[in-house]
Design a protein around this nucleic acid. Structure first.
Length: 874
RNA sequence: GGGAGUAUAGCUCAGCUGGUUCAGAGCACCUGCCUUACAAGCAGGGGGUCACAAGUUCGAACCUUGUUACUCCCACCA
C-alpha cells in the first residue's frame, strides 16, 4: 500500500467528521452510564469564530472526548446567544443599508426582519466549530431565544417577581445614547482619557462682583445644576455657607449645601451638583432633597431644559458652552486633565448616567449561597486565584439592572393597567385574570393592558443555560435534567466571571437547589505577539479557518493547547501551530514505517524485541500515570506535552528504532502485533487532542478490523503497574547509546562504521543487544581494566571505552577529562562540606544524609576513574 | 484609591511538603548529517546571579520582610 510521505489534513478531516456525524457518535441520550455534561458558553449568534473561541472549544472538546473514551456518557450541548444589543445593532444597520428606518417599523415588523436575519446569517459560528472537530451533540443545538428558552426566561421573571426578588425602580443607570438602552455596570468599560478641567465662576447672589469657582469636566451639565456643595470642614469656603449662587449662563439661583463627600483638596473645594447626570450627585440630591433636572434626550442631545442649546449633541454643546462662558467672563481657567470615562462595551460610546425606570433583580439574598459553594469548593475554580475575584464581587454586589430598551430579546412580561398599577404574568390572558383579581373593575378586556416595552438583559437568559438546555425550568422533573444536571466542567474566559459564571451559580441554587457545574476552567485571554488582546478592531487576530486550512485542525488545536495553561494569557503566534502540524506528520511517518514492514510467520521473536515491547509498555504506563494526574488537575498543556514526548521520543526515536528490522528483512508476527497494539493505544491517548489524524491512523493500522468503527468509542488506556527499576536500567542503556553517538559526532566517525564498546563497572547487561543495534556496535564487552588508547566516556560511575583506529589527540582528551574532573571535585567538595557540618548530619532526615553519602561515594569513584584515565593518556 | 497575581534559558512555561546531580521541558539557536518512515526529519551541543536586597534554616528557586517591574480585577474625586 502506498502512503503519502506527508500527512495531508485536507484529505482526512472532513471525511471523518462526516463519518462521526453519520454514526451519531456525538449524540447522547440518558442511559445507565455516568453522565459527563458540558454546556457550551453560547457565542453570539451574530459572531464569527475568533481565536478565543478556538481555545475555549478546543479545551472543551479535549475534555469531552476524553470523558467519552473513559466510558462516560458525554454530552456537550451547543447553542448560541441572542445577544440583544449586538444583534439589534446589526439588524438596524442592515435595515438602514436597505433604506429602512427602525423608527418607522412596528415592533412586530422589526422582529420579523430580525428573525429572518438570524435564520440567514446567525449561527455561522456553529458551522465553523465543526471544522475544529468539536464533538458537540448537534441534535441538541439551542438558542437563548428559541421557544423553550424564551418561555423559561419568562417563567423565571414571573417567579422572581412573585418572590419579591424583582422590582421596578427609578435609578441612576448607565445609559448608552447610541444603543438607546440602559446597560449594566458590568458592561461599562472605563478608559483613561485626556480631557480638560474647566473652572467656572458662580456669582454669589446678593454680593455683586463676588463669585465662587467650581471645577468641572462637564460644563454642559450646568443646565442641570440644582446646588453647589462644599465640605463643612473646609476653612477656605466657610464664607459660602448658607449663601445662594447663580449658575452661569443659565441664571438659575441655587443653594450652597454642605456635605463631607466633597474633597477639600480637589479644585477649589466647590462642587456643582447635577443630580440627574452623575451618580454621586444623584446620591447628594437624595440626602439633601434636591431637585433633579434632566437635560438630555435619550440620544445624548440636549432637551428643552437645555435652553438655547436644546437639540445640540452633548459634546458639541460642551464646546459651545465653553466659548459662551469665556465670552461672558465666567470661565476662570482651563487645565488639562486625565480621568476615567465610562464607555459602552457594545457601542463604544461614552456612557451617560441617567435617571430612568428600570427593572432590577435584588441580589443580596440570591447571591449568598453562590459565595458559599465556591468558598467550600463544591465548585472548584481552576486556577484557584479566581476565587478571590469572585468573592470580592459577591461581597460588594449591587442589584442587577435587567431591563433593556430594545426589541430583540424576551419582552418583559409586565402589564400596566390604566390606573398605573402593574401585574406580572407569563401571558396577556393570565395578566388580565390577575388584573381582574387584584384590581376589580379597572380593566374590561385584556387589550386594555399595556405591556412593558423593554426586553430583558441577555444574561438573564444565559444564567439559566445549564438548566434551560434540558428544559429544567418548565419541566423540573424531566428525565434529561435529572440525568444531565449538574454539568461537570464549565470552560470559559475570566472576563465573564460576573456576567455569567456567578449568575449561573445563583440560578442553579434558586431553581435546582444544586450547583450548575463542578469545575470551572478559566482559559487565558488570547493575545498577539505584542501582548495585545486579539480583537476585531485591531485586526490582529488570525482567521481561525485560514489557520486550520494551513496547519490542519489537529495542528491548530495542538498549537493552542501547548501554550495555554489554565488562567494564563496565551501569547499566540501562528508559528506554534507548526509544531502541531509537524507532530501530526511525525506520527504519520511512523505509520508509514510500520505499515512498510513485511511480516514473517517463520521468524521467532527475538529476546531484544520482547524486551523492547516490555520497555515500551512500561514506559507508556509510567507516562499515563502522569497524564492522568495532569487531567485531574486540569493541566491540559502538560498532559499533551507528556503524550507528545511519549510518542515522539519514546515510541518513534527509541522503540521503533529498536524493533525496526534490517532493510529488506521482515519482522516477526508477535512483535508486529504488539507494535500495532501499542500504536493504537498511543493514538487513543492522543485522540482527544488530535481527533482527525488519530482516527485516520487508527483505521489505517488495521483497516479490516476497524472498518465501520471509530477510535472515538475505544476505551482510553489507563496506567498499570510498571517497574521503575527496569525503566531506570533502560535509561542507563540509553545514555550509553547516546555516549557512543556523541563520540561519533565529535570525532567525525561515520554512523555506518561499526564500533566496539568495552564497559567497566555497572552496566545494564540485559540491554546489550539493543545497545549494540542502536549504537551500531560490532560487539559490547565488559572489562575489568581500563583501556589505553581508546576513546572513553562515563555513564554515572561506569566507564565506557571505544577503541578506534584514528589518532587520538591526547591533549584534547586530557583537557576534556580535566574539565570533568574539576567539576566533579567541586561537586564533591560541596557534598563534603554538607557532610562535615554536624548540624546537617544530625538535623537532616536520615534519607537525605544517605543520599549525600551516596553522592560522595559516586563522586570519589568517578574522580579516581578520571584521574586514572588522564594518567593513562600521559 | 482598594485588591489579586506574576517575575526561572532568546520565547512560552514546569519545578508538589525547603533536601535525589535541582536548576528542568518544549520551541528557537549552533554543529554535523538528504542514514532506504519522516529535512514538517536524524544525531549531538551551547545557553539561566531562579527580578533585587535582607532575613529564617544545617540547607532556600521554594518560607518571611522589604524594594522594583509588569499584568489583571474592583472603585470612579467633580
Amino acid at each position: 500500500m502506498e502512503i503519502a510521505s506527508k500527512y495531508d489534513p485536507h484529505a482526512v478531516e472532513d471525511r471523518w467528521y462526516a463519518f462521526w456525524i453519520e454514526k451519531k457518535l456525538f449524540h447522547s441520550e440518558p442511559d445507565d452510564r455516568q453522565p459527563y455534561t458540558v454546556v457550551i458558553p453560547p457565542p453570539n449568534v451574530t459572531g464569527v469564530l475568533h481565536m478565543g473561541h478556538m481555545l475555549n472549544n478546543t479545551i472543551q472538546d479535549v475534555l469531552v472526548r476524553r470523558a467519552r473514551m473513559m466510558g462516560k456518557n458525554a454530552c456537550w450541548v451547543p447553542g448560541t446567544d441572542h445577544a440583544s444589543i449586538a444583534t439589534e445593532a446589526k439588524v438596524v444597520k442592515m435595515l438602514k443599508d436597505q433604506g429602512i428606518d427602525k423608527r418607522g417599523l412596528t415592533r412586530d415588523e422589526f422582529m420579523k426582519y430580525a428573525w429572518e436575519w438570524k435564520e440567514k446569517y446567525g449561527g455561522i459560528i456553529l458551522q465553523q466549530l465543526r471544522k475544529l472537530g468539536a464533538s458537540c451533540d448537534w441534535d441538541r443545538t439551542a438558542f437563548t431565544m428559541d421557544d423553550i428558552r424564551y418561555e423559561s426566561v419568562i417563567r423565571v421573571f414571573c417567579d422572581l417577581y412573585n418572590k419579591g426578588l424583582i422590582y421596578r425602580g427609578v435609578r441612576m443607570v448607565n445609559w448608552d445614547p447610541q444603543a438607546l438602552t440602559a446597560v449594566s455596570d458590568e458592561e461599562v468599560i472605563y478608559k483613561e482619557s485626556h480631557g480638560k478641567l474647566y473652572y467656572l465662576r458662580y456669582m454669589i447672589e446678593g454680593e455683586p462682583g463676588k463669585y465662587a469657582v467650581v471645577a468641572t469636566t462637564r460644563p454642559e451639565t450646568i443646565m442641570g445644576d440644582t446646588a453647589m456643595c462644599i465640605n463643612p470642614n473646609d476653612p477656605k469656603n466657610t464664607h459660602l455657607r448658607g449663601k445662594k449662587v447663580v449658575v452661569p449662563i443659565v441664571g438659575r439661583v441655587i443653594p450652597v449645601i454642605e456635605d463631607e463627600y466633597v474633597d477639600i483638596e480637589f479644585g477649589t473645594g466647590c462642587l456643582k451638583v447635577t443630580p440627574a447626570h452623575d451618580i454621586n450627585d444623584y446620591n447628594l440630591g437624595l440626602t439633601h432633597h434636591l431637585e433633579s433636572i434632566d437635560i438630555f434626550n435619550d440620544n445624548g442631545t440636549l432637551n428643552d431644559n437645555g435652553g438655547k442649546y436644546a437639540g445640540m449633541d452633548r459634546f458639541a454643546c460642551r464646546k459651545q458652552i465653553v466659548q459662551d462662558l469665556e465670552e461672558a467672563g465666567l470661565l476662570e481657567k482651563v487645565e488639562d486633565y486625565t480621568n476615567n470615562v465610562g464607555y459602552s462595551e457594545r457601542t463604544n460610546v461614552v456612557i451617560e448616567p441617567k435617571l430612568s425606570a428600570q427593572w432590577f433583580v435584588k441580589m443580596r439574598d440570591i447571591s449568598a449561597k453562590a459565595l458559599e459553594v465556591v468558598e467550600d469548593n463544591t465548585i472548584r475554580f481552576h486556577p484557584e486565584k479566581f476565587k478571590n475575584t469572585y468573592r470580592h464581587w459577591l461581597e460588594n454586589i449591587k442589584d442587577w439592572c435587567i431591563s433593556r430598551q430594545l426589541w430583540w430579546g424576551q419582552r418583559i412580561p409586565a402589564y400596566y393597567l390604566p390606573n398605573k398599577e402593574v401585574v406580572v404574568a407569563p401571558s396577556r390572558e393570565e395578566a388580565y385574570r390577575l388584573a381582574c383579581e387584584k384590581y376589580p373593575g379597572v380593566v374590561k378586556s385584556a387589550d386594555e393592558l399595556v405591556q412593558d416595552e423593554d426586553v430583558l438583559d441577555t444574561w438573564f437568559s444565559s444564567w439559566l443555560w445549564p438548566i434551560s438546555l434540558f428544559d429544567g425550568i418548565r419541566n423540573p422533573d424531566n428525565k434529561e435534567i435529572k440525568y444531565y444536571y449538574p454539568t461537570e466542567d464549565l470552560i470559559t474566559a475570566p472576563d465573564i466571571i460576573f456576567f455569567w459564571v456567578a449568575r449561573m451559580i445563583m440560578a442553579g441554587e434558586e431553581y435546582r437547589k444544586e450547583v450548575p457545574f463542578k469545575n470551572v476552567y478559566f482559559t487565558g485571554i488570547v493575545r498577539d505577539k505584542l501582548g495585545r488582546k486579539m480583537s476585531k478592531q485591531l485586526g490582529n487576530s488570525p482567521d481561525p479557518l485560514v489557520l486550520i486550512d494551513k496547519y490542519g485542525a489537529d495542528g491548530v488545536r495542538m498549537g493552542m493547547l501547548l501554550t495555554a495553561p489554565a488562567g494564563n494569557d496565551l501569547p499566540f503566534d501562528e508559528s506554534i501551530c507548526e509544531q502541531g502540524r509537524n507532530f501530526a506528520n511525525k506520527i504519520w511517518n511512523a505509520l508509514r514505517l510500520v505499515k512498510g514492514w513485511a511480516v514473517s510467520d517463520e521468524l521467532q521473536q527475538s529476546h531484544e524485541n520482547e524486551l523492547s515491547i516490555q520497555w515500551m509498555e512500561q514506559r507508556m504506563a509510567c507516562v499515563l500515570e502522569e497524564v492522568e494526574r495532569d487531567f485531574e488537575s486540569y493541566r491540559l498543556s502538560e498532559a499533551l506535552m507528556a503524550s507528545y514526548k511519549l510518542v515522539w521520543d519514546d515510541f518513534c526515536s527509541w522503540y521503533l528504532e529498536m524493533v525496526k528490522p534490517a532493510y529488506g528483512t521482515p519482522i516477526d508476527r508477535e512483535t508486529m502485533a504488539c507494535t500495532l497494539d501499542i500504536f493504537e493505544k498511543l493514538m487513543c491517548i492522543l485522540h482527544p487532542f488530535m481527533p482527525f489524524v488519530t482516527e485516520e491512523i487508527w483505521h489505517t493500522l488495521r483497516p479490516v478490523c476497524r472498518a465501520g468503527q471509530s477510535i472515538m468509542t475505544q476505551p482510553m488506556p489507563t496506567s498499570v503497574f510498571f517497574d521503575q527499576r527496569f525503566l531506570d536500567e533502560f535509561t542507563m542503556a540509553q545514555e550509553m547509546v547516546a555516549g557512543v553517538r556523541a563520540l561519533r559526532n565529535t570525532k567525525g566517525l561515520s554512523p555506518k562504521e561499526a564500533l566496539d564498546l568495552y564497559v567497566k563497572g555497572n552496566a545494564p547487561l540485559q540491554f546489550n543487544g539493543i545497545i549494540t543495534k542502536l549504537a551500531n556496535l560490532s560487539k559490547i564487552e565488559t572489562t575489568k581494566d581500563k583501556m589505553d588508547g581508546a576513546l572513553s566516556f562515563m555513564v554515572g560511575t561506569t566507564e565506557c571505552f571505544v577503541p578506534v583506529n584514528i589518532n587520538i589527540n591526547k591533549e584534547d582528551e586530557i583537557k576534556k577529562l580535566e574539565e570533568e574532573l574539576k567539576y566533579t571535585e567541586g561537586f564533591l567538595a560541596s557534598v563534603m562540606k554538607k557532610l562535615g557540618n554536624e548540624k546537617f548530619v544530625n538535623g537532616a532526615p536520615e534519607k537525605v544524609v544517605a543520599v549525600e553519602r551516596k553522592k560522595q561515594a559516586d563522586a570519589e569513584q568517578k574522580i579516581a576513574a578520571l584521574k586514572a584515565q588522564i594518567e593513562a593518556l600521559r
